[in-house]
Every structure is written in C-alpha cells, then in structure tokens.
Amino acid sequence: MTDKKGNVWVFIEQEEGKIADVSLELVCKARELAGKLGTKVEGVLLGDKLTSCVDPLYHYGCETVYMAEDPRLEPFTVQPYAKVIIDLIKQHKPNILMFGATHKGRELGPRVASEKLAGLTADCTELEIDDFDDKVNKNFYKDKLMQIRPAFGGNIIATIVNTWDDPQMVTVREGVMKMDAPDTGRKGKLVKVVPELSDADTVVKVIERVREEKSVNLKGAQIIVAGGYGVGSKDNFKLIEQLAEALGGEIAASRAAVDAGWIDHDHQVGQTGVTVRPKLYIACGISGSIQHRAGMDESMKIIAINTDPDAPIFSVAHYGIVGDLNSIVPQMIKAFKAKA
C-alpha cells in the first residue's frame, strides 16, 4: 500500500473543561502507535468553552487538536457529537480512532462506527501494530491495529482486526494504558471546527443533570484491598473495609462482588472496571478470572487469599494464602497494628 496513511485520533472527553484521564492515557498510547506508523497524533475535542484544554493536549502528545465549541455540544448528548465526528472523519480520514470506554465513549463510539460502517472493538486491553494475513479471504493487510481483548467469559484472548474502510475504532477502559509525563515544551496546531448541526441532531434534551466526582480513586492508590464473591455477603464486606482502613488503602472489588450488589461499580477492578498498579494488592476471595487479572496483574506485590488452592488468582500472586479470609483478614489487621 502506497497511499498516504491517515493519522491516529483520540476522542478527547471532557467534563466542565476537565479532560478525562482516560483520554490522556489514550493520547500517550496514540504517540506510540503513530510512531510505529509514521503518522501524527490528533485529538478531537468537543464541547463549549474549551480553550484551557488545548495546551495540555499538546503537552501529552497531540500534534493537532480539532476543537468544536458550540453551546449545543454542552452538556454531552450522543447525536450532535456523532455528527461532528463523522464530518471530521469524512474530511480527514484518520487511520485509527480511539475512545475511552466510559459511559460517553461507549454510547458515542458505536453510533459513529455504525454510520461510518467501521468496525469497533470494545474494552481492548492491548493495542499493537502488526500485519494481518487473512488466509481465509486471501487478503494481506499491512500495519493494521491489533485490537486485543479477553473474550467469552475470559476463557480466551482474541486479537481482532478491522478489515474494512478506516478508521479502525476501539474503546479502552480507564487505567489500561499508562499515562506518560507531559512535556510542556511540546506545541501543536489548533484547528477550529464549526459544527454543522441541524435541529434533527439535537432532539434529545437534557432536562436535569446531577453528578459528583468519583469518591474513589483506585488508580492513584498505593495499597488496595479487594473483595470478591468469596467474601460471601454484603455484611462480610466490612472485613475488607477494615483491612483497607488499617493499612491505609482503598477498597476494591471484583465484578462478581459488584454484580452481587455488595459494593458500588466505582470500586470494580478489571476489564470492565478500572485497571490499577498499586504497590500492594490484596485479593480476598477473588478467584481471578482473566478479566479481573487484566486489571491488577501489574501490581508490584499481590497477596491472594482463597479457600480454593487451584484458584487462578494464585498464578499471579507473589504471596498465596490458602484458607478462610474470615480468620486470615483479622490476623493480618492484628499483626499490622502490633508492628506499626
């Protein structure tokens, strides 16, 4: 293929002018991908009154920022955002387009992909550039985006390739990609975009909006104590809280514990939750599905407590304790308090 390649785009999500961490993480990943492809990193920033967002985007690695400011783009609604992005795609033909797998990204990405007839892979845990030799259909694709994600209950890891027209679209959860330090010396180009919106694009009206910043900051935590289905009950989750409090850590959970209603989704670690890399991760009663491990296996030290000696969590643990967390957790609290 000799035709000029499109750039690597990141949808920049913002709330009241504050850029979402996941967008900055994706800009950093985009730098790596664009480096391999020999193309540029470009951000797509939509909303109203956004000028303060632009410089940080340069610092993290955007070489171009397409900025659309319009009162009709604030607060976020899907259709006008999709319209502006589709128009930009048609005009500039990016090679790759990444969204954070947030509430917004997960409702906007598919709407854009559907109109563009592009493939979209959700919740990727790794992204790489490689060739794809499609032997079934006898096609060879050079330098495609390998979209890697656990699939099917975590029993397999699938590498997915978008073989149609660009862009190759993916969503990625917060914390999965690492955020590099910004370089304030970096400069970029601002392209102001005038949205072309019709009344039909803005039929969904937001009447009331209530939100607060997340009270949990798992990504920044040094110590995390996480509970899974093996904790047994909502009441018993207090043990997890007590250990976290004693050690000065944050409380986390596996999906099974969140689904059981014992704790809020903000605390969920894993492919469909947050990815964390703390100094210490204590997994209590968590069997350790691939989706959960994908969110925590880069922790510096991992302690696993489980009654089942064959639980997969032990394969990633630095310290394994086979036994009942109901007696082990109190012993840990006691031992720490005695020493500290």
Binding site: L117, A118, G119, L120, T121, F132, D134, M146, Q147, P150, G154, N155, I156, I157, A158, T159, I160, V161, N162, T163, W164, D165, I290, D297, I302, P312, S315, V316, A317, H318
Partner: peptide, 16 residues
C-alpha cells in the same frame, strides 16, 4: 462484519 478475529489464544497463566 468489518472486524475479523485474527487469532484466539487460550489463556495461559504466567508463572509468578
């Protein structure tokens, strides 16, 4: 379907 599965790997637990 624009997305094709390039490969499937069974999950191999890395030895720690």
């Amino acid at each position: 379907s624009p997305t094709k599965v390039k490969k499937i790997q069974n999950v191999v637990l890395k030895a720690t």
